[in-house]
Amino acid sequence: MQRAPVSVLREPRKKMQPRDTRLDSYQPLIDAILEADLTAPRKQRHTAKRIYDRVLDEHNAVDIYHQVVRGYIADRRKEI
């Protein structure tokens, strides 16, 4: 009786869907600020810190971190 050939390589892992983050509800707000900055003079554009502060002050977003906002802004500026 012969055995079926066994592959040495494992099956590739399934791609997981991205999970929701705390930042998801604030992304449209951040995108609007970034789009408004496109028409603003260079010296009047928002920094990542300023956008983070605005989200905290205007929308009471105490559950997000500056590092997460900064990373999102860096990615979005490349896309916009």
Score class of each variant (00 low, 15 high):
V6H: 08
V6Q: 13
S7L: 13
S7Q: 10
S7N: 11
S7Y: 06
S7G: 04
S7W: 04
V8A: 10
V8T: 07
V8S: 09
V8Q: 06
V8I: 10
V8K: 05
L9F: 09
R10G: 06
R10A: 10
R10S: 11
R10K: 07
R10T: 02
R10V: 00
E11F: 00
P12Y: 00
P12C: 00
R13A: 13
R13P: 11
R13I: 04
R13T: 09
R13M: 09
K14A: 15
K14F: 08
K14E: 14
K14L: 14
M16A: 13
M16G: 03
M16C: 06
M16T: 08
Q17K: 14
Q17W: 05
Q17C: 08
Q17Y: 09
Q17V: 10
Q17G: 06
P18R: 11
P18K: 11
P18C: 04
R19I: 07
R19D: 09
R19H: 05
R19G: 01
R19K: 14
R19A: 14
D20P: 07
D20S: 14
D20Y: 06
T21Y: 01
T21Q: 10
T21E: 13
T21M: 05
R22V: 06
L23Q: 01
L23C: 02
L23T: 02
L23S: 03
D24C: 07
D24I: 03
D24S: 12
D24P: 07
S25D: 07
S25N: 04
S25M: 11
S25T: 12
Y26L: 01
Y26I: 00
Y26D: 06
Y26C: 01
Y26S: 04
Q27E: 15
Q27Y: 02
P28L: 03
P28M: 05
P28H: 02
L29S: 05
L29G: 00
I30W: 04
I30C: 02
I30G: 04
D31A: 09
D31I: 12
D31K: 08
D31W: 01
A32Q: 13
I33C: 06
I33Y: 13
I33W: 03
I33K: 04
I33L: 15
I33A: 09
L34D: 11
L34H: 08
L34I: 15
L34V: 10
E35K: 14
E35L: 15
A36F: 03
A36Y: 02
D37R: 01
D37K: 02
L38Y: 03
L38E: 15
L38R: 14
L38P: 03
T39P: 00
T39R: 11
T39A: 15
T39I: 08
A40V: 07
A40N: 08
P41M: 00
P41R: 03
R42M: 06
R42Q: 08
R42A: 13
K43E: 15
K43Q: 13
K43N: 12
K43C: 07
K43Y: 09
K43I: 09
Q44I: 01
Q44Y: 09
Q44M: 10
Q44F: 10
R45Y: 06
R45L: 08
R45C: 11
R45F: 07
